Lab assay of single mutants.
Amino acid sequence: QTVVIGDTTYHLNNPEAAQQIAKELAKKYGLKVVISGNTIKLK
């Protein structure tokens, strides 16, 4: 699972954790979560 935040890319072996982290950050910073395949992007 790949999480992309701005110009930073994180690789996590746990998809659920990756999605949870993405949701928390999106909520905290008012970002939009875009999931395509096994890549999660925060914009």
Rank of each mutant, 00 (worst) to 15 (best):
D7I: 13
E16I: 10
K41F: 15
L12P: 01
V34Q: 07
T2R: 10
V34H: 06
V34E: 11
K43S: 13
T2A: 09
K41E: 12
A22R: 02
H11K: 07
T9G: 02
A18Y: 09
I35D: 01
K28A: 05
L42S: 01
I40F: 05
A26Y: 11
Q1N: 11
A17C: 14
K41W: 15
V4F: 06
L31T: 03
G37Q: 04
N38P: 02
Y10H: 01
I21K: 08
K41S: 12
N14W: 11
L31F: 11
N38D: 07
Q20N: 07
I21V: 08
T2G: 04
Q19F: 15
G6A: 05
Y10F: 11
T2E: 05
A26Q: 05
K28P: 00
I35K: 04
G30V: 03
T39Q: 06
A18K: 02
S36W: 09
I40A: 00
D7G: 13
D7S: 13
E24V: 13
L12M: 10
V4D: 03
K27T: 08
N13M: 10
L25A: 00
N13C: 15
L12F: 15
G37N: 06
K41M: 14
G37R: 04
K41Y: 15
K43E: 14
A18N: 01
T8F: 14
T8I: 14
V33L: 12
Q19V: 12
E24M: 15
T2C: 15
K23Y: 14
I21P: 00
L42N: 01
N14H: 07
G37K: 04
A17R: 10
A17L: 13
K43R: 11
V34Y: 12
N38C: 11
Q20T: 09
Q20Y: 11
K41A: 09
A26P: 00
G37A: 04
L12G: 02
Q1Y: 15
K28E: 03
I35A: 04
V34R: 03
K32W: 11
E16V: 09
I40L: 06
A26L: 11
I21Q: 02
A26H: 04
V4S: 07
E24P: 00
Y29L: 05
L42V: 08
A18G: 03
G30S: 04
A18T: 04
T2N: 08
V3N: 02
A18V: 09
A22P: 00
Y10Q: 01
V33W: 07
T9D: 02
V3I: 14
V4E: 05
Q20L: 12
Q20R: 14
Q19S: 08
L31H: 05
N38S: 07
K32G: 05
L31K: 03
V33D: 00
Y29E: 01
N13D: 13
G6H: 07
E16D: 08
A22I: 12
G6E: 04
N13H: 10
A17I: 12
S36R: 06
V3W: 09
T39N: 04
Y29S: 01
K28S: 03
T9R: 10
